[in-house]
Computed example of a mutant assay.
Amino acid sequence: MAHIDYYLATISPFTYMNGTRVEQIAKAHGATLTYKPLDIMGLFGATGGTPPKDRHINRQEYRLQDMARRAKLAGLPLNLKPAHWPTNMAPSSYAIIAAQNAGGGDLGAFVHALTRSCWADEKDISQTDVIAACLTEAGFDAGLAEADMVNSADTYARNLEEGVAAGVFGAPFFIVDGTERFWGQDRLDDLDAFLAGKL
């Protein structure tokens, strides 16, 4: 049985545009999935990346065009310049870690609800009430929004360290069985093909 480590950033538009496809792909191939939210800005700093606001204007303009195309292909609404972006991604990331540890809901739906809240619903995902509403929507206890913060913070920091060590440099990023790497929402078909034994 294959295992997928899913490195994600809750403020990443491309994590949002995954929808719940990675969960569907994992289920189709009987693969297990571990969610590893991390600090994308810290990841950029550790791996030679540049935050979007600091990129050359050519890259900034292309990013927005590509985001619009990706969202249209995914059939998802997208605000290219959301009111609450960037925002502190730690609280929403901690909640994903707490929910994964607690179980009892749909983790893929929770991640999608968070990212949709940022990129389509004009909500600030650093706020406890927004996180709690997303938890409830996905079948989790809303109290997980503030549960076990110390352990979640440790895991969040460790996810960044482990990601860098494993070769991660962006989000979303998928690593199968610790070796095969796939970067980006636009590589989900490749992930699917690899798990099917076609790549």
Rank of each mutant, 00 (worst) to 15 (best):
E122C: 10
G49D: 04
F169S: 03
N101Q: 14
S152G: 08
Y35M: 05
P82Y: 10
I4R: 02
G42D: 00
H29F: 09
L191M: 06
L199T: 11
E180Q: 13
D39Y: 13
I4G: 04
V164W: 03
A98S: 07
V111M: 13
F194G: 04
L43G: 00
K53N: 15
I131L: 09
V111L: 14
K198S: 08
H3A: 01
A157F: 12
K72E: 11
F173V: 00
I125R: 05
I11K: 02
S117I: 10
L107Y: 05
G75D: 07
E180V: 13
A99D: 01
G184C: 02
H112W: 12
S126M: 06
T128Y: 14
F140E: 01
R187L: 00
R116I: 10
P51D: 04
Q60Y: 10
G105K: 06
K123D: 01
L195V: 03
L80G: 12
G49M: 09
G103Q: 08
D148H: 02
E122V: 11
M17V: 09
L64Y: 12
K123M: 09
H56M: 10
H84I: 05
F110S: 03
R187D: 02
R70K: 14
N151T: 13
G75W: 07
G103C: 09
I25Y: 04
T87L: 11
S126N: 08
L64V: 12
I25F: 05
G178D: 00
N151D: 12
Q185E: 15
N18Q: 12
C134R: 07
A102H: 11
H84E: 06
